[in-house]
């Protein structure tokens, strides 16, 4: 178990090294000359109007909820799919039931307008 995942940790280490190396290079060698004009939030040169942290549309929150629901579904499907031939028609019908329930969920969210971005 440990030896299987050892290379993964090595890969993680190397990736972190590459990223931090690039990061350190630019923060060490890059000049820093802050001026008051430079430090204001960039908006194509004009002064900022309004708050900097906007109130965001509730749609983003709904998308996050839907993501959690459907991503868990996808994870449930993976082990079933890799054993599909072994389980045969029985497994297929079971999954048909599961997918139908999720299909209804999707239709419900759709009809309720959770997937509409225009409004």
């Amino acid at each position: 178990m440990f030896e299987t995942y050892l290379p993964v940790f090595l890969m993680l280490g190397v990736a972190t090294l590459v990223a931090t190396l690039m990061f350190t290079l630019t923060s060490l060698l890059g000049p820093k000359k802050p001026t008051p004009e430079k430090m204001i939030p960039y908006e194509a040169g004009s002064n900022t109007t309004g708050a900097r942290h906007l109130r965001l549309s509730v749609k983003f929150y709904l998308t996050a909820i839907l993501f959690v629901v459907f991503d868990i579904e996808a994870v449930f499907l993976y082990p079933w799919a890799s054993l599909f031939r072994e389980l045969g028609w029985f497994g297929f019908l079971e999954m048909l039931l599961f997918l139908t329930i999720l299909g209804v969920t999707l239709v419900y969210a759709w009809k309720k307008g959770a997937l509409e971005w225009e409004k």
């Binding site: 908006e43 906007l54 965001l56 749609k59 983003f60 499907l77 993976y78 799919a81």
Partner: peptide
């Protein structure tokens, strides 16, 4: 920066949505 924030939210929303789609499209392969 509000444009950064909007971009970040858009990125997050788009990426999680398509992650679900991506995960489901390849189930037939397994």
């Amino acid at each position: 920066n509000k444009f950064s924030l909007m971009g970040g939210m858009r990125a997050a929303s788009q990426m999680v949505s398509y992650e679900v789609a991506l995960g489901l499209t390849i189930v037939p392969c397994f």
